[in-house]
Design a protein around this nucleic acid. Structure first.
Length: 424
RNA sequence: GUGAGCGUAGCUCAGCUGGUUAGAGCAUCUGACUGUGGCUCAGAGGGUCGGGGGUUCGAAUCCCCUCGCUCACCCCA
């Protein structure tokens, strides 16, 4: 280590094969699932003005307070790497002034997010999320559709075991009263709360509910429940969402203490946990955000969405055998001598352009070494070409599975190997 | 941001209480009557023991600092 070597940024690792293959397949399944539910892809920038997230996620949220990568751009602008996907999608839609004017907008996104946290199992600084947003409908069926898609995606990705929790956090009509009730409840018991939660008393009472501190937990178990303080509208909405989920026979657990980290959620919230995951066990989460569009400057427009952490999906998935197996098949071209290499090089390109996986040795090594390479390449057949074959205007083709070998005219090699008649 | 554990060949690791040229398996390369794979056998290359400093006659082994990784707290997907 003479020269200081350049290393990847903490929490932002590389993905090599064969894992990269698993990623591609996972992303394909996500896109396919979203597609069949009527969502189309939206791609938004990785960089946004910090104010978007500050306003969108809530100034008091941990993400905004300490987890964003922020940069000073030329012209005094402050930019942030997106820590989540929803704010950007909403910003894009508001900017195009098309927030569900004619029916709901349904978009899915897939890509990297950035949060400056200490890496651990299932948590990276650059991680990847797949999510959907449905803008412009207050209908409870939209909530159910989102949850349905989430469960379909998880099972199609190989996540068999998970716990789906559902709750309603009310709206701006009924939540304040509940928060007051909760605050006065906990204030009477503040001695039993951890220091964090004592601060939460004034900052964000709701979060005391999902504190992991045993003592806080104990107190929280006797706390008033949001579900008993919902206004009529929220109550109806919640029960209709549950009805739709029942119709689809989606198993979920009502969790009156489920709270989300982002401030923009209203009414429905849900979260999927995997027992295979470790400390960071949330594999996907989401909910309704009826006020976000408005608070980002758009016409008031109710919306609902979810997002799944793909690293965690991969960790929680039981991958089918062969999921990580390397590619195989195709042709390996072995050459003996420069002229043989040149002729093989031409054939190589033609094979590849015909869609056949093909490889050649650049190093001019022994035939034995090239055969070994062919085997490692998992080729099905090897083209052998040396001085002898060139003299006869032929090539030898060896089948690596059967060991059979035959000599054919060089001119016919391409059509034999592609299985297509010559001249095509 | 806090805490704990760990950093030895490309990979997985061994190196007891500090002591001769730092090892193994896998991988790679070469060879086994000189143009033929997968098995076997033989051999080779590859490490400033994360980096820096210190203790010592002597350190991969002890101490300090630093960088990195991992897990957990926090929080979240």
């Amino acid at each position: 280590m003479k020269k200081p070597k350049i290393q990847a940024v903490r929490g932002m690792g590389d993905i090599f094969p064969p894992e990269s293959g698993a990623w591609r397949r996972l992303e394909y399944r996500a896109a396919a699932a979203a597609g069949s539910y009527g969502f189309e892809e939206i791609r938004t920038p990785l960089l946004e003005p910090v104010e978007l997230f500050a306003r969108g996620l809530g100034e008091s949220s941990d993400i905004v307070q300490k987890e964003m990568f922020v940069f000073d751009a030329a012209g005094g602008k402050r930019l942030a790497l997106r820590p989540e996907g929803t704010a950007g999608v909403v910003r894009a839609c508001v900017e195009k002034k098309n927030c569900g004017k004619a029916g709901p907008l349904k978009y899915y996104y897939l890509g990297p997010m950035f949060r400056r946290e200490r890496p651990q199992a299932g948590r990276r600084r650059q991680f990847h999320q797949f999510g959907t947003e449905t803008l412009g409908t207050p209908h409870p069926a939209a909530d159910a559709e989102t949850v349905d898609l989430l469960t379909f995606f998880l099972s199609s990705a190989g996540v068999a075991e998970y716990d789906l929790a559902l709750n309603s956090v009310g709206c701006r009509e009924c939540r304040p009263a509940f928060q007051r009730a909760l605050a006065s409840f906990f204030r009477q018991r503040s001695d039993a709360l951890c220091p964090h939660c004592r601060r939460r008393l004034t900052l964000n009472v709701l979060r005391i509910l999902d504190c992991k501190n045993p003592s806080c937990r104990k107190e929280a178990s006797g706390a008033p429940l949001i579900t008993e303080h919902l206004c009529a509208g929220c109550q109806t909405h919640f029960s209709r969402v549950r009805n739709f989920l029942d119709l689809l026979a989606i198993p979920c657990r009502l969790e009156p203490r489920l709270v989300r980290g982002l401030d923009y959620y209203t009414r429905t919230v849900f979260e999927a946990f995997s027992p295979a995951l470790g400390a960071q066990d949330a594999v996907a989460a989401g909910g309704r955000y009826d006020n976000l569009v408005e608070s980002l400057g758009g016409e008031p427009s109710p919306a609902v969405g979810f997002s799944a952490g793909l690293e965690r999906v991969l960790l929680a998935a039981s991958l089918p055998p062969g999921y990580l197996s390397p590619p195989e098949g195709g042709v390996y071209l072995a050459s003996l001598g420069d002229e043989a290499f040149r002729q093989n090089f031409i054939l190589l390109s033609a094979l590849r352009r015909a869609g056949i996986r093909a490889e050649i040795d650049f190093a001019g090594r022994s035939l034995k070494a090239q055969m070994r390479s062919a085997d490692r390449f998992s080729a099905r057949r090897v083209v052998i070409r040396g001085e002898d074959e060139i003299g006869r205007k032929a090539v030898r083709i060896k089948d690596l599975e059967t060991g059979d070998e035959e000599e054919i005219p060089a001119a016919g090699a391409l059509s034999v190997l592609t299985g297509k008649p010559a001249g095509k």
